[in-house]
């Protein structure tokens, strides 16, 4: 359908301004520069607006950082960001407050996260390729079923699912957390990748097929490299969502040695008596670091799409 979108994009302006097509290269260059940078004034304005909004966006993190340096009883009495004392001990105490050093829980989380990422990348992209590019009977039915699987809230699914994993003897292992990802149960990512693959020009795989490529080769050599932004998105989201996922990790992991970061963080908090809020915030900051770093580096791959791979 959109094969005609791109031509439209050129032809529509071209129809009205045919002469520009032959515009001298000098002018084109100038225009490009303008587009990239704009005038100094507007550029400055843009930065000012972005920074102003950025401060609002950053406020929670700054507040958490400040709270992690405050004594427990001050956290709830001070709304501002002024620090009067530096309670570094929140970090040392928080790190050692539970049975294992906090790093232990971060390693556990990392195992679950890496397994989930690999699972989602491999299995979801395969399913997505089939849905987006292949013809098979019952495709629409299966696609609808796939979407339905994300429409039921986890709270009614968890008990039957627990019974299955418990019968299999997999409770208190990472299997119930990782295996579903290896089996593409995260329909969010399948659907995401379907949308991305459908956005890729079909001429590419048709050309490859004429060259004698099978589906496996088209998938691995053409589609996967081209959907880098979708894969990066999947990686980043899987990392963050798994890193923060409290409920299923709480349910499936029983031995404190197996606890992950979100479960460990909640262990600082008791709604009926004193909680170690300072330690909780300190360890929250520590556990945010890997996620933030992953985002910082991962987002570079977000922008490595078809635009930069040089395929035309």
């Amino acid at each position: 359908m959109t094969t005609n979108i791109a031509p439209q994009a050129n032809t529509a302006p071209a129809a009205t301004r045919t002469p520009t097509k032959a515009a001298p290269p000098v002018r084109r260059k100038k225009r490009n520069d303008e587009e990239l940078s704009g005038s100094t004034g507007s550029r400055l304005l843009k930065h000012i607006v972005l920074i102003a909004f950025g401060i609002i966006m950053l406020y929670p993190l700054l507040w958490m950082l400040v709270s992690s340096l405050r004594p427990n009883d001050v956290i709830f009495r001070e709304a501002g960001l002024w620090l009067t004392t530096f309670e570094i001990s929140n970090y040392t105490e928080g790190w050692n407050a539970l049975q294992s050093p906090f790093g232990h829980y971060m390693i556990n989380s990392m195992i679950v996260v890496v397994g989930s990422i690999i699972g989602n990348l491999v299995s979801c992209s395969m399913a997505a390729y089939a849905f987006a590019r292949l013809k098979f009977r019952r495709r629409n039915l299966l696609f609808a079923i796939m979407l339905m699987t994300i429409m039921l809230p986890i709270h009614v699914i968890i008990v039957p699912q627990y019974i299955i994993f418990s019968e299999l003897g997999w409770v208190n292992t990472f299997i119930p957390l990782v295996l579903p990802k290896l089996l593409a149960t995260d329909a969010f990512f399948v659907f995401l990748m379907v949308q991305f693959i459908r956005g890729l020009p079909k001429e590419l795989d048709e050309a490859a097929r004429i060259d004698g490529c099978g589906h496996v080769r088209i998938f691995t050599r053409i589609i996967l490299p081209l959907m880098m932004p979708a894969l990066a998105t999947t990686t980043i989201f899987t990392f963050i969502w798994t890193w923060n996922d409290f409920f299923s990790q709480l349910i499936y992991l029983t031995d404190p040695e197996m606890y992950t970061v979100p479960v460990a963080l909640r262990s600082f908090v008791d709604s009926t008596a004193t909680s170690s809020w300072g330690s909780m915030f300190a360890m929250s900051i520590v556990s945010l670091l890997p996620v933030f770093l992953v985002f910082l580096f991962g987002q570079k791959y977000l922008v490595k799409g078809i635009a930069t791979t040089g395929i035309k």
Binding site: V159, Y162, I163, L250, I251, T254, P256, S267, D270, S271
Partner: peptide, 25 residues
Amino acid sequence: VAGEFSDFSGYWDKLATTTAGRDAP
């Protein structure tokens, strides 16, 4: 003796689930 701990509200969700799965502590 293997200890299992969590916060108050998570504790009850987990206990209900494990009990339903005949796997209570």
